[in-house]
């Protein structure tokens, strides 16, 4: 590839919506990444809601889970990208159902990423008011998973 073509590519990348680019042509390989670009995994992450402060900071108004923001609503959000599982194994009962009370440290779901079954534990005693995602659903960092009421 000619130098002028590379410069042209850099300019194109700069004005495009792409964050990075990879080209391979025979032995020639070129990898470009925009300065300050954050590569979004798969889809744009939803607003990150800290479990304890979600309802207060206004972020939840942009979440599909939020209806009428209420100071008593708390959300547990996904700490990582992955696949959401409600059960420890396909033939076991779910960790939690809506209405269940859980204690701090109880496992409430699994998020699988790269074949690591990450057990998500409740960070405080709470009642599960609503489960906001389906079993096996792909979730992004910050996706609200559970609406809970602190106990």
């Amino acid at each position: 590839m000619k130098k002028s073509e590379i410069i042209e590519l850099i300019e194109k990348l700069d004005t495009s919506s792409l964050a990075e680019m990879y080209i391979k042509d025979g032995e020639f390989e070129l990898s470009l990444k925009k300065a300050g670009a954050v590569v979004q995994p798969v889809a744009a992450p939803q607003h990150v809601a800290a479990p304890a402060a979600a309802a207060m900071d206004g972020h939840m108004s942009q979440s599909p889970a939020a209806e009428t923001p209420d100071e008593s609503h708390e959300f547990i959000t996904a700490p990582i990208v992955g696949t959401f599982y409600r059960t420890p194994s396909p033939d076991s009962p779910p960790y939690v159902e809506e209405g269940d009370e859980v204690s701090k440290g109880d496992t409430i779901c699994i998020i699988e990423a790269m074949k690591v079954m990450n057990e998500l534990e409740a960070e405080f005693d709470c009642r599960i008011k609503r489960i906001l995602v389906e079993n096996q659903q792909m979730i992004e960092y910050g996706t609200p998973l559970f609406e809970v009421e602190k106990l």
Binding site: L18, E20, M21, Y22, V39, P41, V42, I80, V81, G82, T83, E112, A113, M114, M138
Partner: peptide, 23 residues
């Protein structure tokens, strides 16, 4: 095209975008 630091798979898609797979 390879993996990332978190172990995610990096795929170059037809659109020219790199897509990271986590699951």
């Amino acid at each position: 095209t390879g993996v990332g630091e978190s172990g995610e798979l990096r795929l170059l898609q037809k659109s020219g975008k790199i897509r990271s797979l986590y699951s």
